[in-house]
């Protein structure tokens, strides 16, 4: 389309338009098409299909019981105690995981922002848990909690936290702590890395100026470090909240949602419903409910961001 043309036969405006059209509408899409096709076919299309499933009865174990059933799945969901329990668990799971991950991650980032001997090696080693495949983290921690081969129950009993060395993953009151601890272990590096990057972007002159103005280390932390990190912290925590709320791998491997659904979160409930019960209609209804909740959260986020940016 664009080539050497010195004849000048075509009017300039049309040529300019064509070359504009090429650069603006055609050429970029040559690069984008494979990605768009895959995302459309493997994510967007199934999402729409999934929404339609939520109005149907699709149980692979009962193949003849298939068809449109209107809002029945949603009515079942409304009166499903397990779903409401899963919602509650999702909240605790997310809140506790992110609080510990963030606090410990910030501590690690601040340590890494100082100088000490062997820092590079230290950094590689403490970030290693991030690279451990999640299924393996889950298995490792469930073994650590196992009184037969793991030391944790014995140590906890020794410290008086447990009356005797037993597996907390089998105790409905404590089981959720198992995956939470594994999640903290797995998630500290993420916060440490992102916060460290943010810390290093604070100009050191600011601290020098504060020191000259007579600020104590604690004052520099609260008056300079935290305000500087605040926007980054807000965005990271908000996005990470979504991610953790939906992170079902650890729970599925460590407890399978049990005992007695005491560790089931919404996304693991979707998975067990689809994978164990093969009830796709109901699983899709839970998924749509989750989607709606997440959208509400996203709207809340956008609103919050607007408020924060204004101030």
């Amino acid at each position: 389309m664009i080539d050497k043309a010195s004849d000048g036969a075509t009017p300039g405006s049309e040529r300019a338009y064509r070359s504009f059209y090429w650069r603006y509408m055609v050429e970029p899409y040559l690069y984008l098409t494979p990605a768009l096709v895959l995302i459309g076919g493997v994510m967007m299309f199934p999402l729409i299909i999934g929404i339609s499933y939520s109005f149907q009865s699709i149980e692979l174990l009962r193949p003849f019981n298939t068809g449109w059933i209107g809002l029945d799945n949603y009515l079942d969901l409304w009166s499903d105690r397990k779903f409401w329990l899963a919602l509650e668990n999702t909240f605790w799971w997310t809140f506790l995981s992110i609080s510990f991950q963030f606090t410990l991650g910030l501590g690690l980032a601040m340590l890494l922002n100082t100088h000490f001997y062997g820092k590079r090696l230290f950094q590689t080693l403490v970030f290693l848990p991030w690279a451990v495949p999640t299924f393996l983290s889950a298995l490792t921690w469930s073994w650590l909690f196992n009184p037969v081969i793991g030391p944790l129950p014995h140590w906890m009993a020794g410290l008086g936290i447990l009356s005797e060395p037993y597996n907390i993953l089998g105790d409905p009151d404590l089981a959720l702590w198992g995956p939470i601890v594994a999640n903290i272990w797995f998630g500290i590096p993420f916060f440490a890395i992102t916060l460290l990057a943010a810390l290093q972007s604070i100009p050191s002159e600011l601290y020098e100026a504060a020191a000259i103005d007579g600020a104590s280390p604690w004052q520099s932390f609260t008056k300079i470090t935290l305000p500087f990190l605040a926007p980054m912290i807000a965005i990271t925590v908000m996005l990470r909240t979504i991610w953790i709320a939906n992170f079902a791998d650890l729970i599925f491997v460590m407890t399978g949602g049990g005992p007695a659904n005491s560790t089931q979160i919404v996304s693991s409930y979707i998975f067990t419903t689809a994978f164990r019960k093969l009830d796709f209609g109901y699983a899709s209804a839970i998924a749509v409910a989750l989607l709606v909740l997440l959208m509400m959260y996203a709207v809340f986020l956008l609103w919050l961001r607007k408020k924060l940016v204004k101030v």
Partner: peptide, 15 residues
Amino acid sequence: GGDFLIDGNRMNDVP
């Protein structure tokens, strides 16, 4: 808009 010429040849659309 307009024309750009090198040695009398119109170059607007020449890469």
